[in-house]
Structure formats: C-alpha cells, structure tokens
Design a protein around this nucleic acid. Structure first.
Length: 487
RNA sequence: GGCUGAUUGGUCAAGCGGUUAAGACGUCGCCCUCUCACGGCGAAAACAGGGGUUCGAUUCCCCUAUCAGCUGCCA
C-alpha cells in the first residue's frame, strides 16, 4: 500500500477564494486521514495574471487555517522545486513536451492569432468557439525545422485522436466518457515557453508522485485530455476526486461582489479561522452522524471522501455566522476578552474606568462576529437620544405616566444608595417592587430605558447601572424624568 | 450551440428499493427572564416533471426541464 499524496496547487492570482480553500482543506483531510502527505505547489505559469504578494497570502491562509504541508517551496523533500516557474527554468516541461512530439503525441504549431481567429465559429450570445483544425500537424519535419530555425513563434499542441472514446474514472462521479472528436488539441507549451496548466499539472503530479488528484469539478471535462497525456507518457493514472463547486446565494459562481469570496474578506469581517474551516468542511461533505462542530483534528479523523456530495452548494453566510457564534460562545473567556478588547476600546472612549471584562462577559453570548459588539455597547459611552414612546411597553404594563412615577420614586433611593454593585441594586429595586406589589418589569423597564436609552440592551437595568456607576446612573435617571415631565 | 455533470424544505444536508423522508441554519410560536441574547420546547417547510423496471420507487433506467462547469497561448 503506497502512501497517499495529495497536492494543493493554487495560482498566485490574488486573495484565496473559499472554493480554493475548501479544495486545500479536502486535499489535506484526504491525505491526513490516510496518514499520507499533503504537498503544496505553486502554479505560476500565467505571467499575465500573476499578482505580487499573492503567494504570501496563500502561505498566510494555510498558516491561519492550520493546513500544514509536508512538502512545499520551503520544504523540499526531493521533489522540488515546488514552484512551476522554477521548474520551467529547469527545463522540465519542455523536455517532456519534446518527448511527446517525438512520440507523435504532440506537435509544433505555428498558427498565428489571425488564423486561429478565422477558425472561430460565432455562436449565440456572442460566444465564440474555436476548435483547432490540426493544420500544423501536417507540416513535414523539414518544414517544422525550418520554421523553428527562423524563429517563428510556436506552441506545442497535444495530438488527440478524432475517433473513438476516452473514459476515466472519478471516485465520486464514477466513469465518465467522451467522444475523442470532442477532444481539442490543447496547447501544452505556450509561445512564451511556459507550460499551460493542462500540461504542467500532469507532469508535476506524476513527478511528485501524487496519488490522489483532488480538484474542483471545473476540471471534469478536461480530465479525458489529461488521461490521454498520462497514457501517451505511459504513466500511471492517479485516483481522481473532483469536488462539487460552491456558489453564492444566486447559485452563481462566487464573485468578488458577493463579499465573501475570499478567506481574507471573511476574516476581515470578524470571523474566526477555525469556524470558517469547520463551515467549509461541511459544504459538500457530511459526517456519518449529525455532528456539526469539528476541530481540524476531529475532521481528519472523521473525513471520508466517499461521503462528499456531488451537487453544488450555496455558501450560506447566515449559517457561517451562526457557527462563528457557536465558536465564540465556546471560547474560553481570556481569549475572547483579548479579541474583544479592541472593539470595546473602539467604542468606550469616555474618560471613565469602564469594567471591560464585565462588558465583554455581557456581549459574549450575544454576538456572532466581533464587529457585532460595537452597536451593542455604544450606549454605555453616551446616552443616545431616545423617544419617550420607549417607556411604553405592553407586556411590562408600563407607559409614560407610570414610568415617570417609578423614576421619581426610585431616584431618592438611588441617591441614598452607596453600593452600586449589581446585586445590591437589584435587591434595592426588588424591595420597591414588593412594596408596590407590581411585576418586576414594571419598574425595571423604565429604569433600564432611562439609563440606556435603548429598546434592547445586553444587560439588565442593574447591571447597566453597575457599569455606569452612581453619578452617571443618576444623571441618566434625572434626564429621563425631565424628558417625561416635559412631554 | 456542443460536451459533461448536477437536481431532497429558502439554505446546508441524511437517505443508498419498503422510513411518520433525519438533523442543522433561518423563520414563526411558547417557556425561562430585569429588555435583548443564551438555554429549553414546539410548528410551518422538500424528494423538478413525465415515462418505464419492480409486488413496491426519493433511491435503478430513459426522456424533458432547470442550473452549473468546460468549450482560452486562465487555471
């Protein structure tokens, strides 16, 4: 039994897409579940789309998500280099392309853009289809030599048969067949000397002894051509696992506009890496039981790629939020506090010794992502303008009149009170409730309204006063009284 | 247009010939409660359509529809 080797081979073209990240995750999980190796390779053969800094983003994403690779550009285990542009420099692809030319499985093509354009067939919606007509396949050896010698730009194309069918097996999708007449003579080596993905991918996967080729199913339709390449070389065909795609809410491919296209975008919105990993693991895969919360290690243990779904799934931001909220609730307080503090400090700017830890405790069960904290606590910093209609609450049986009465009764009690701890204040108000023989809410509601100016708060009236302290609490109660009196 | 694939509630998703068709998010209701949230309980909500095969189809086959991907000197 050979050791399983899976690779993650992204192109450094920008931020890391969540579809890409999920591929990386599944590749990692498939390898690790079987005790295999996870290889990281960079496919930078498209010099036009290369984005400066994109490689760093990929490294960083892998680090943040905990997808540790066993081999990669900075971890050569003898299969390197792991960056395709370096492999180009080493002449690897050209060597194999020429081998194919010698075998008659590939050929030089000197057709220029104009001729290629003339081959295009106009089809609906402005889409054009080009099928190469094997024009250059018929060049004689002498003609090829002559053109090469005279420096005419060329590409190397795969020479595919035009009759018969090609079948390949995918672990998830089963056997897939296509007529060979559908197989275009795709370009292997571009005129700039770089290989296309189609070629580099096959060569590298073989050379790096990748056993399981795991990738998005946008490659499903070109896999027959890859198979023909393996066969032309006489190489062993790897196990294929094509993954269903992830779409946005409109069932369209995730776009930049959808706001959650990249891992970085999501992290910037206040999500935790482990929640994102957990969430995307469940997008297209499910465990045997109904469990939904998994650490990476637990995923490794449970992940069986045969349980991967075949149909595309929508990236549901709402459920990601829920899951992130679960992670926040389960987080130990010290770590939560540390992460929440910047948001707390951002809002609580008043020159007052706020008890940040207490406030953090209040919001912990009330947020899904960290930025949710801010709107919850701004009232602590400053009493907002509010409408006295807020004093009226049907269930609490309160209205402006009753509220005014309660606030006026309570004010002297609060002024006399020295201990502003939550417990003490609560007992104090409860004694008033008992004395008046009313429901708790009847007195709590107007007080909470007066000290917060908010319809909803992350804490009760007495907890709020504990935070605000005596002076500020009384000031806000008085403000409430004057608002009600002047109504 | 051609090729390939997919199709279970709004979303994720179990199911792999016989089930009251799980569970989760969201939504709604109730309880808890010093508001909200947490927590607890409950409700509404699905097998794309049509033919077969079969004693019996969500499960197997075919057709249609819809969606997606590919159809690049992008990956």
């Amino acid at each position: 039994m050979t050791k399983i080797r899976c690779r993650f081979a992204p192109s450094p073209t920008g931020r890391m897409h969540v579809g890409n990240l999920r591929s990386a995750l599944y590749e990692y999980l498939i390898a690790k579940h079987a005790g295999g190796d996870f290889i990281f390779r960079i496919e930078d053969t498209d010099r036009e789309r290369f984005v400066e800094g994109a490689t760093e983003i990929i490294y960083n994403t892998l680090k943040m998500t905990g997808l540790d690779y066993d081999e990669g550009p900075d971890k050569d285990k003898g299969y390197g280099p792991y960056v395709q542009s370096e492999r180009v420099a080493a002449g690897i692809y050209m060597k194999y392309a020429k081998e194919l030319v010698d075998k008659g499985e590939a050929y030089y093509c000197f057709c220029d853009k104009e001729r290629l354009a003339s081959l295009k067939t106009e089809v609906v919606e402005g889409k054009e289809i080009t099928v190469y007509d094997k024009h250059c396949l018929h060049l004689s050896k002498e003609e090829v030599e002559e053109k090469l010698a005279s420096g005419i730009p060329y590409v190397i194309r795969q020479n595919n048969p035009t009759t018969g069918t090609t079948t390949f097996h995918d672990e998830l999708y089963g056997d897939i067949s296509v007529d060979n007449s559908e197989l275009d003579d795709m370009i292997l080596i571009k005129s700039d000397g770089y290989p296309t993905y189609n070629f580099a991918n096959v060569v590298d996967d073989h050379l790096m002894e990748i056993t399981h080729v795991v990738r998005g199913n946008e490659y499903l339709s070109s896999t027959p051509k890859y198979n023909r390449l393996y066969e032309a070389f006489g190489w062993e065909i790897p196990t294929y696992v094509h993954l269903p795609l992830i779409t946005d809410e409109e069932h369209k491919k995730l776009s930049k506009r959808s706001g959650h296209s990249s891992f970085e975008d999501i992290i910037e919105q206040g999500f935790l890496p482990e929640a994102v990993v957990n969430f995307i693991a469940l997008l297209g895969w499910s465990p045997e039981d109904n469990r939904e919360i998994f650490t990476l290690d637990e995923l490794i243990k449970e992940f069986d790629y045969r349980r991967i779904n075949k149909s595309p799934s929508v990236f549901d931001m709402g459920k990601l939020k829920w899951m992130n909220g679960e992670y926040i609730k389960a987080m130990d307080f010290d770590r939560f506090y540390e992460m929440a503090l910047p948001y707390l400090k951002n809002v609580l700017t008043r020159d007052y010794p706020f008890d940040f830890a207490k406030i953090a405790q209040m919001v912990k069960t009330r947020i899904e992502v960290f930025p949710d904290i801010e709107p919850l606590i701004t009232f602590f910093n400053e009493l907002p303008e509010y409408d006295i209609a807020m004093y009226t609450h049907k269930k609490m049986k309160t209205n402006a009149e009753s509220s005014l009465e309660v606030l006026k009764d309570i004010l002297p009690m609060l002024e006399a009170q020295e201990d502003y701890s939550n417990d003490a204040l609560y007992q104090l108000l409860l004694s008033y409730v008992a004395e008046k023989d009313v429901k708790n809410g009847y007195v709590m509601w107007p007080i909470r309204t007066a000290v917060s100016g908010m319809q909803m708060t992350p804490a009760g009236a007495t907890e709020i006063m504990e935070i605000l302290g005596k002076e500020e609490s009384i000031k806000r109660i008085k403000k409430g009284i004057s608002l009600l009196e002047n109504a």
